[in-house]
Amino acid sequence: MDGLIAAENGVADPVSDFWEVAGRRFRSRLVVGTGRYKSLEETAAAIEASGAEMVTVAVRRVNLSDPGAPMLQDFVPPDRYTYLPNTAGCHTAREAVRTLRLAREAGGWNLVKLEVLGPPPFLYPDMPATFEAAEALIKDGFEVMVYCADDPLAAKRLEEMGCVAVMPLGAPIGSGLGLSNPFMLRSIIENARVPVLVDAGIGTASEAAQAMELGCDAVLLNSAIAHARDPVRMARAMRAGVEAGRHAYLAGRMPRNYAADASSPMSGLIR
């Protein structure tokens, strides 16, 4: 699942450091949502600045009273970005399958994001419904990247069912609280044989870096960029944060030590 990496000079080679899901290869480890922007122009500019190669999209009814309205595809071209259609708003396996069949017909691809959410105020993943929907989608030929609870057993079960990536939350969707559960995320990452993406909760670039330092393959976020005062600049910050976190993970952090250890030699002092 991981492209390798270790170049002789110790710098991760940006060409060979890729991650792979369902046979597709990505160099950017930042996956971004396309919702909540002020305009489609802003959506396009922020996504461009993020460097993302994969974007999540929703499937909704066309407004027939305004058929000429600009469409997402005109601003975020599907031949340039890999669309990852989601199941936002679906509460049952049946609704999820129906929605993604339409998405497959609209776009002609099988890679999808499954999310079945519980009620407000937390919109926490509804895991029993998620298992059921994942099973139905896999049976229907979809390649499922699945939003899930930060539960190592649930993540493992989804992997064993055949999901192509597991995407535990860092904190509730749109909350911007950062990683509330680094230990659980780490446990999931260490046990997974499919890519792990931290999806939801990230609020700023340092939190994206932190997720990458834990060793996840990529992060998925939307509101942190769309709701920043300057979304395009935050998109750039997220791109840099994800890259920094990836480098730090590969570099391997120094051990924590609860006593000081001087950086300058104690020998050769003038007397």
Binding site: T34, Y37, V59
Partner: peptide, 10 residues
């Protein structure tokens, strides 16, 4: 009949 398209989403 349902007619759908892609819109922005997370």
């Amino acid at each position: 009949i349902e007619v759908v398209h892609f819109i922005g989403g997370g």
